[in-house]
Design a protein around this nucleic acid. Structure first.
Length: 731
DNA sequence: AGCACGCCGACT
DNA sequence: GTCGGCGTGCTC
């Protein structure tokens, strides 16, 4: 009698054994329905064996093994086990959170046709002789010949079809005469000739293609506008020719559709599957299945896509590898970029980490020779030059309403030359503070340690951390003085100020509030492309990825805040962000200018920025990290605790620190003091953290393994929730 | 996570 | 005398 070991979605780090008379080794990776306590639940078979340590009276029989779709491949199961070990997260939750929702339900996933996909003829269908179909089945014969002639029926055409024809198509699907593929609507459009690569791009492409059959991590460091995407496209083309699949990971930002369109356009014959948060469960499953069956040549997605099964994986690309959104911030706190490296190594394929401002982790790997460094120094569009970057010293220049005279003058010049400008301020709303002048009261959130932001249009105060909203009070709630004033600038206030300075200009504000509407982002892009905008005002949403060809001026306001941050990565991130925003300026043949309003014009960050010198700044930061023994020269984990009151959280961490001394490798690690988290109060709960440092990943892991087990047995965790975060990004 | 069991306060 | 509060513990 076979025993199956099953991963279930429970917060206990173990597998559950069941009797399964009909199970064999080929069932590993299949879904299974099992009785669990008083209920039934669905799990994944991780191994099949003949004996178990579970006493016979506890052992139950599995109800049913699902064979409707092929099992998860061994490589993926291996990745799950790695996540389990490395991130110290229960195996069942790793597995079940990484597969599509639909696969976690009891109902079978019979190939349900997807409305969003085209019906494409298979090789089998193509070889059929339509005259073999009896002449009286007129519709059936016609449908087959149509498919053989056109190759596909796009989704729009399917919607027009009669119910009978739709039924026939479903029949064809069951017979494997057709398959469902996501294809570009209106497929064979006039294809524009791809630009010929620059010598730098060619060198990079050649270098990567020289070794495609083995693990090779590449750091593609290319300045904004240098054409990293063209490198991805060319390397992808070569691997698609070898019948391999390409995984492209992107940050969770609005530029996914643009990249998707570009890949679809370049590879009209290839099924491009896009896995992002905008999909419903069915669409996600369909895309996942195409990937798993090897039918999808290109899988493009956000961090969760790193768990997609890809039997023919030949290349992984991580675009904007420095982006923080590759790190999951709850549940299984994985880094999709790091897991992508693991997968590439596991599959023996190249991986390209692309960035204009690589993370210090990746950059250090490149300097140390662990990654191979490729550089694109020049802009891909011939004649395009780098922008000139200047600081405006806020200590010497007045900035009424947050805007200095030289900045307004520059905007006026751009306007008169009919060129577009971008005003970047990383703070949405009207004003970040509402202040009472007579008693010093400040509007604060009751559930978070944050200030409420004034939103003038909505006449509200909003907490940007928990979403709490209230109306703006008419007078100070403390002293009754009606003279309460918004302090500081947000996007809305800057927008208003610009409108009064430039009444004739067409000003468009872009932040999370203004693009909440569906498709709003696309209409912003269209408006900018079609020259319907003179001045863009916005947050970091505007920082990434898009070509704004007529943009000549970028103004950066209020960036200094990050310089006071307690997070040791704040400066690295600010630098990356400002480099990106600055890169928006002067992309085509218009020379660009970047103006930065700052109180610290001599700060090394701004100095490096104005010289556009990523390398020297990154080396400076790395030297600091090395001297202070911080990542990437040390490895970190953080134990976070949250409770109703900070004292319980701190007390728990105190106990945790005490039991740590008895743990394996305690001598090899360094524990910091438990401290309140930077945003101590959040959504009505108070949080504290305890940082662990080590010089060796192995020692840290051994310590954490032991520590975590003891933390579970620490009984007095009443009402204290805790978790471990490995390689934490935000402290 | 669910879902039980279990042992103490206010109700028909 | 019960209904129900949520603390503790288990689920193959």
């Amino acid at each position: 009698m076979a025993i199956i070991r099953v991963a279930l979605d429970v917060p206990v780090d173990c597998l559950f054994d069941y009797l399964a008379p009909d199970a064999s080794i080929t069932d590993i990776g299949l879904r299974v329905c099992v009785p669990f306590g008083k209920r039934r639940t669905l799990g994944i078979i991780l191994s099949v064996c003949t004996d178990t340590s579970v006493p016979g009276n506890k052992l139950k029989q599995a109800e049913r093994i699902y064979r409707d779709i092929p099992p998860l491949p061994p490589a993926l199961l291996e990745l799950f086990k790695f996540c389990n070990r490395y991130y110290h997260h229960p195996i069942g939750q790793v597995v079940m959170n990484s597969i599509p929702n639909r696969l976690r339900q009891f109902k079978l996933t019979i190939d349900q046709p997807s409305r969003a996909f085209a019906w494409v003829i298979t090789d089998k269908g193509r070889l059929l002789d339509a005259t073999d179909i009896p002449a009286r089945s007129r519709a059936k014969r016609l449908l087959l010949t149509t498919l053989q002639d056109n190759g596909q029926i796009p989704p729009e055409a399917f919607k027009q079809m009669s119910a009978h024809n739709r039924k026939l198509l479903r029949e064809f699907l069951a017979l494997d005469w057709v398959t469902q593929m996501p294809l570009v609507p209106g497929l064979p459009t006039a294809q524009t000739e791809p630009p010929s690569p620059t010598p730098e791009q060619n060198a990079a492409i050649a270098a990567i293609l020289a070794d495609t059959g083995m693990f090779a991590p590449w750091l593609l460091h290319g300045i904004t506008g240098s054409g990293k995407t063209e490198v991805y496209l060319r390397v992808t083309a070569a691997l698609l020719k070898q019948q391999r699949q390409v995984l492209l990971l992107v940050p969770e930002i609005n530029l996914t559709p643009q990249l998707e369109a570009r890949f679809k356009q370049r590879f009209p014959e290839t099924a491009v599957v896009s896995l992002h948060s905008g999909l419903n469960d069915n669409e996600r499953l369909q895309g996942w299945l195409l990937a798993q069956q090897g039918k999808a040549g290109i899988v493009l997605g956000t961090r969760l896509a790193v768990f997609t099964p890809l039997p023919e994986l030949g290349l992984i690309v991580v675009d904007e590898e420095q982006d923080l959104s590759f790190k999951q911030q709850d549940g299984l706190r994985y880094s999709a970029r790091d897991l992508a490296i693991y997968r590439a190594k596991q599959a023996g394929v190249p991986i390209i980490l692309g960035s204009a401002t690589p993370s210090l982790e990746s950059y250090q790997h490149a300097l140390a020779g662990h990654y191979r460094l490729l550089r694109l120094h020049s802009r891909a569009v011939s004649g395009a030059t780098l922008p000139v970057i200047r600081c405006i010293d806020l200590r010497l220049t007045k900035a009424p309403e947050g805007l200095t005279e030289p900045l307004l003058t520059a905007l006026q010049t751009a306007l008169s030359q009919q060129q577009q400008s971008l005003v970047f301020i990383n703070r949405r709303g009207y004003a970040p503070v509402l202040l009472c002048k007579s008693c010093g009261w400040v509007a604060a959130c009751t559930r978070c340690s944050s200030r409420l932001v004034v939103h003038l249009h909505a006449r509200q105060l909003r907490c940007h951390y928990c979403g709490h909203q209230q109306t703006v009070p008419a007078a100070c709630p403390e002293c009754g003085d009606p003279d309460i004033l918004p302090f500081g600038q947000g996007t809305q206030r800057i927008e208003a100020a610009l409108r009064s300075h430039f009444p004739a200009a067409r000003i468009l504000r872009v932040d999370r509030d203004s693009i909440r509407r569906k498709h709003a982002w696309q209409s912003v892009l269209d408006a900018v492309q079609n020259q319907q905008v003179d001045i863009l005002v916005g947050t970091q949403l505007l920082a990434k990825g898009h070509d704004f060809p007529n943009l000549s001026l970028v103004c950066i306001l209020n960036a200094d805040a990050s310089l006071y941050s307690t997070d040791f990565r704040a400066e690295e991130q600010l630098f990356a962000q400002l480099m990106q925003v600055a890169g928006r300026a002067g992309r085509a043949d218009i020379p660009g200018t970047v103006l930065i309003q700052t109180e610290f014009p001599h700060h090394p960050l701004y100095q490096a920025l104005s010289r556009q010198n990523y390398d020297s700044h990154a080396r400076t930061l790395l030297r600091e990290r090395q001297l202070t023994h911080f990542p990437p020269f040390a490895y970190q984990a953080v134990l976070r605790a949250e409770a109703i009151v900070i004292d319980s959280a701190l007390a728990f961490l105190g106990k945790a620190a005490k039991i740590a001394t008895a743990c394996e490798q305690f001598g090899q690690i360094q524990l910091f003091d438990p401290v309140p988290a930077p945003m101590m109060r959040l959504k009505g709960r108070e949080r504290a953290q305890l940082l662990v440092h080590a010089h060796s990943r192995k020692h840290l892991q051994e310590f954490l393994f032991d520590w975590q087990q003891r933390l579970h047995t620490l009984a007095a965790q009443k009402k204290v929730r805790w978790h471990l975060d490995i390689d934490p990004l935000m402290l």
